[in-house]
Design a protein around this nucleic acid. Structure first.
Lengths: 251, 251
DNA sequence: CGTTGGGTTGATCGACCTCAATAAAAGTGG
DNA sequence: CCACTTTTATTGAGGTCGATCAACCCAACG
């Protein structure tokens, strides 16, 4: 089973209704697998209906662009299935991936005029899309939703600081180990903890996230595999010796 | 003139009144040099009085601890004068500075249970200290203050992502250049843009911020000085060729 | 006036990058 | 379904940027 289908929300796409009747909307969100993990987890049933009325379903293929760095930010997104990479490009082509987005993640936490980074889909992806201004108005009417948004942004900030430690003060091996442990934790929230960690991103992506080259990432992974700490499988890795990997990533 | 006194809020310390009479409080905040730049900029006169009633003045010497990593977060702080370093320590002693706090900066944007990092004063420092729970209650009553808080957290997140690019994808020279340009911009908000950038932190601190060693930071600074791009002065640097430094830091 | 902490400079080393070749996998069109 | 291209991953050889180790300077300070 490949990553895309494994994490795709539904094989039949969500019907493209811009405005759902209330009843339908409620059902729509009720069935959402990531609701409790996402921003929507902060909402009551009636609020959920109101918010859903603002949403447009979005379905993308792998490699499709979600939005681009420095562009005016027209929309915010709540990812319901699939994964994405968030990155900044330097003028000379160097790239830094600032994060990977998984189901339940919200794109647009900053609610700022312009996008701080580009985002594109790593796999087929579905999301609820909101107009930024409509979402902002909704936020003004629901202070507890703003609190949740802020809590999520705070969590992101904390992850960003952890990533600074990884980028600035860890060796290549530690970086790769920390990456695997971090990703494992995030997948664990979403699914019944599988031993296999899906890796929807390429080695190049991992390198651009960790401040390494493709080759170094590949070498570190094969070293871990040679030492029986992990097993490399198609589109993922299986952690054979979690304790050891955690020790390498020791925070 | 040394950094501490240059940026100290007042030579006579704020009187240690835990509860100010309203009139005094209003005057107190009215005179605050960083009010418009800080969280308090979002408040009306009457709200300012209410918030000030929750605050305790805090005065620290250089090297004093503000709070420590992983400790329960009892307070949040609004820095009124002086500067601080925010950092995470690894078990083996490696350190990553995740940011420097200047006047107007708010410590506790995350409003989380535990501190994500340690903070200590680089210079004599004054701040308004708030109990986290009182501040949180105040926040519940003032949604627009929460919006401002969230806007500030978003800005922090954006800076953190920029720092990821610097840590992951820039050379030593570019890192130092980007550091100088970034700091210059932050000081510029605070004062009538002086040509001299104060550096209240040590070379070691700069290294721990940029993922470099002291020696490399020193070498890069002396190289820039040799090339007449900067002039190293006591407790700071003067940018002689801003264009050139900006080009090195080219975002 | 010795001590201490910060800063600079030099010599050497090594972790990771670069360049190159190959292999494996995933599209793509006939 | 099979040739063919393109993308991704792995592995090796060699080079380099920044780290490490070490010496020294200087200002602050008791």
């Amino acid at each position: 089973m490949t990553i895309p289908t494994a994490h795709a929300h539904a094989s039949q796409p969500v019907p493209a209704l811009a405005l759902c009747p209330n009843a339908k909307a409620a059902v729509h969100c009720e069935q959402c697998r990531v609701r409790s993990l996402s921003l929507c987890g902060a909402l009551e049933a009636d609020e959920l209906v109101a918010l859903d009325r603002l949403s447009r379903p979005l379905t993308l293929s792998a490699r499709d662009t979600i939005f681009e760095q420095d562009e005016l930010s027209e929309s915010v997104f709540n990812i319901t299935a699939g994964s994405a990479r968030l990155y900044r490009l330097l003028p000379d082509g160097r790239r830094q991936i600032v994060g990977f987005a998984l189901p339940g993640d919200f794109l647009g936490l900053a609610m700022s005029e312009r996008n701080a980074f580009s985002a594109d889909a790593l796999t087929p992806l579905t999301a609820c899309q909101f107009s930024r201004s409509h979402f902002s108005d909704f936020l003004d009417a629901k202070p507890h939703l703003l609190r949740k948004l802020h809590a999520m942004a705070s969590h992101e900030l904390s992850l960003a600081q952890e990533q600074m430690v990884i980028l600035g003060r860890r060796t290549a091996e530690e970086k790769v180990a920390a990456f695997l442990i971090g990703l494992r934790k995030r997948w664990a929230r979403l699914s019944t903890a599988s031993v296999t960690i899906p890796l929807p991103m390429t080695r190049q992506d991992i390198g651009d996230f960790l401040g390494l080259t493709v080759e170094t990432v590949s070498r570190m992974l094969t070293r871990l595999a040679r030492e029986k700490a992990i097993l490399i499988v198609p589109d993922g890795v299986r952690l054979l010796d979690v304790k050891r990997i955690e020790a390498m990533a020791e925070s």
